[in-house]
Amino acid sequence: MEEFLNTSINGLSSGAIYALGAIGLSLVYGILKLVNFAHGDFMTLGGYVAFAVNVSAGMPLVVAFLAALVVVAALGVALEVAIWRPMRRKGAGVMQLLLLSIGLAFVIRNLILFQWSGATRSLDVDQFQAWNPFGDVVITRIQVIVIVTAGVVLVGVAVMLRSTLIGKSMRALSDSFDLAEVSGVNTRRIVLYTWVLAGSLAGLAGVLAAVYTTLTPNTGWFLLLSIFAAVVLGGIGNAYGALVGGIVLGLAQEWSTMVIQPTYKEAVGFVVLILVLLVRPQGIFGQARTL
């Protein structure tokens, strides 16, 4: 039982990070038909911005969080204006945009490597403070930060998507770009808001990943495949699905360590990804029509 609770806490922590990354990836895919392979590197950038603010400049963690959010959101918007919008106007195909995003991922990752080197970094957080709420169940200060921050933000995003006009417009665009446009939605503005949301969530996920584990120029890239799995699990293009998919995947990976070697837990995510695509490609929450 204690093992189950401990792995659940670990799973919720990594699942929360996946979920934050997955929502943006899924919304961008749903609305723009862009499979953004640079999304993981957006997260890495968030982590390094936080590192620069928190460690290099010695400012508090909260400031680091905000800086990462702002920088990555701004990057998302800048790339939309500089690359994605002109490419869509040219009528670029899905694979063309996908390959372009791979090139972009190379550029971002290696500029990070250029600037901050490949050394493993961590943020200024107490790594060792932990509580035992009962029995042998352990929860660390870091896990509390991750779960609480991600939990608050995820609920906020879910409410935003459900109730606000911007959120509804985003979902409408994701359902059908053309129908939303003829119904009078200002698509260009909503696309920019989508990048702001996707970018800031990716930045936040990157900082939390840096807090929870460590930070290298590959951090986001390694997380990206699991995040893809979360997106597929929740139904591609479905933002709530991505949220739940991330948490389910995080739990599944950690629970798997009770039966198989922990070093295989990443592979568990990929097996889930392949099985879902083969058996239920619309995901747990997706509907067949969205394919």
């Binding site: 990443e266 592979a267 990929f270 097996v271 695509l277």
Partner: peptide
Amino acid sequence: IPTLRLRADYFAITTIAAGEILRITIQN
């Protein structure tokens, strides 16, 4: 056999995941 029926972008992601499963297995 199982994956070629998938659409191009899903096929791409599936193949990368399969490759990573293999690599992690080799590593372990």
